[in-house]
Design a protein around this nucleic acid. Structure first.
Lengths: 342, 342
DNA sequence: CTTATATCTGCGAACGTTCACAATCCGCGC
DNA sequence: GCGCGGATTGTGAACGTTCGCAGATATAAG
């Protein structure tokens, strides 16, 4: 209030105070090697005394970079931003945070058709890179991708089923192994995988592979309870579990490819008087909040959205020529649904 | 690939093609009134032919604006970005989207102590405005706020308990009314409010007020089942519900201030053999995914994160001098927990 | 003591826009 | 017929930084 708002200090002000030229200030603060250590200290001191910060707008203009990361979240046609998967939201949030930590701003968009988005940003050139969250089977989208990529624009994908591109995924093989090892340690003898393979959801397939591997390592035959398409994932899980019971399969535990299916399965088991965890162990993947409130509470493998977001940002911003393909560690969260009472 | 990447066209290129001077291009495209309609058309045509877009960096530098919106999500000390309330995430996402739609980028941060953030952005001046998501009782934070505000920097708050500032909240009074009206229509006779009043959570208090008003309008006496502090909201709900049963209060329905409490209450009722919805109706607020999977599925009042995000951005960016205080509509979602079978 | 070399710093320009101001054109009234 | 105001457009500068290049200083070698 009193005194009014002072003008923001510029590099000229710092230069004057430090007794050097203005470009020297720039060099000192941007970490250029061609600067004497003594000068740098002097400049830094002056900058701090004045409360100086580099004006990113000017720096970016001159440098030719945008300092901006575009993020597109793929959602179904007509979906509002509110109705997407909670994990995608958490991922979005952590991408934004990771970008901010590296001094990048984010331009976020929810899109049913990624290609529109790609075209737009490609032309407008408003972002240095693009992070895509979600899975699409949309072929034109992949074309736009390659176009972006060949222009030197960086793109990273969460869970991409397309092998030409940079991606980041959960360590789904480890998830499968963790699930099997936990179930066996808890006293179950024949865990079965619940989920569909060979769908665009590569991550599900990978979880199965981890599961199968661990089963064989324990001298057991993998077994699969395939799901069929339904309106919701819960419904898929419900149906698959019901079928399992009807056919009287010889299994005593289920590893569902995602929590939503696991929750559906829990309902089906309850309806058929199969008591979880006594008669049947159930474990999922995703660590949905819902799993904390189901009855019984759901054991699950938790992905790490914070790590995943950081990895995505890193994949986009670090311009190593090598393709970035990172696995983000997962962790086991034990709740009642696999606690076979002694 | 072939031909390499062409240089991005500038306003000089457009000017040359349209046969006007460069600043005229700027005027034509920025909607300045001091321009002949014929000229504007000529310029726009040339711009489209060349695929020209204004370089935001240069425009912002010259204009003195940042084109950036800072968003801070307040979380508890040590919390990672991943562990915050799902609604806050949804809100964050929709704020980012709403900002992007208005051509603003977002700088997102998760902070336990908002004052650090305020100070940082205040000095660095990297954002035109600030959106704060979350509730804090931290007094120093409010000081920083006022400072920002008096410097002409715009700030908007989700659910602020501080009356000097712009805020956006759910229409909590309507929520209370909706809950009561629904419960009465469903055949319950004496619904009770479950939650604590006079806490920093103004929104809870407002929901109670709406509830009480609707009760009186129906000729009923409001009733309150106060919660006490516990590690989690579920636990608060569980305890409050247990006490309600022990004391044998004459009630047949509960409106919980949030879904987490409602879910806790559901557990307590189940443990005490009070059958929901037959003996007791339960309704919450938040529309957590968890409510879809609880047993029975939870009737709830759903806030609208998309609308809320848009309103927050509007409050920050529209520089009317009048304080922006907006109520975002809520909607009733009926599930089994209030479906008293006939 | 001089020259070559490496290390550091200053100078000027450039990035692409918007803004203040001056210049031009037009029609109209005296 | 000349000047004058309003509507448009052009001119020049400025926003605050980074970059290329030349100049300066110090250190080492001949």
């Amino acid at each position: 209030m009193s005194g009014g708002s002072r003008r923001r200090p510029t590099s000229f002000d710092v230069a004057e105070r430090a007794g050097v030229s203005q470009p020297t200030v720039s060099r000192a603060l941007s970490g250029s090697p061609a600067i004497a250590e003594a000068t740098r200290r002097k400049v830094i001191e002056a900058a701090e005394a004045l409360g100086y910060f580099v004006d990113e707008r000017a720096a970016r203009l001159r440098r030719g970079s945008t300092g901006t990361l575009a993020v597109v979240v793929i959602c179904r046609e007509g979906d509002s931003a509110a109705s997407i998967n909670p994990f995608a939201y958490a991922l979005l949030g952590s991408v934004c945070v990771a970008a901010s930590e590296r001094g990048f701003e984010t331009l976020v968009s929810f899109q049913a058709s990624p290609e529109a988005f790609f075209g737009h940003y490609q032309e407008q050139g408003r972002a240095d890179g693009l992070v895509v969250i979600g899975t699409t089977t949309n072929a034109p989208a992949w074309e736009h991708f390659r176009a972006l990529d060949s222009e030197g624009r960086r793109v990273a994908y969460w869970g991409s089923p397309h092998d030409e591109l940079d991606w980041v995924r959960s360590d789904n093989h480890a998830a499968g192994r963790l699930a099997v090892e936990h179930l066996l340690a808890a006293g179950y003898r024949r865990p079965c995988f619940l989920g569909a393979l060979n769908t665009p959801q590569v991550q599900f397939t990978e979880r199965y592979e981890g599961y199968a591997e661990a089963m064989r390592a324990a001298g057991l035959e993998p077994c699969l309870a395939p799901t069929v398409n339904a309106a919701t994932r819960e419904e898929e899980g419900r149906r698959a579990a019901r079928r399992l019971i009807e056919r009287g399969e010889d299994i005593d535990a289920v590893f569902a490819a995602c929590d939503a299916m696991a929750l559906g399965a829990l309902e089906a088991f309850a309806a058929a008087d199969v008591t979880v965890p006594r008669d049947m162990g159930v474990i999922g993947f995703d660590d949905l909040v819902a799993g904390r409130f189901s009855r019984p509470p759901l054991t699950t493998i938790a992905p790490d959205p914070a790590e995943a977001g950081a990895a995505l940002v890193e994949a986009v911003l670090d311009d190593s020529d090598a393709m970035a393909r990172r696995r983000v560690p997962v962790s086991l969260i034990v709740r009642d649904s696999t606690l076979r009472a002694g």
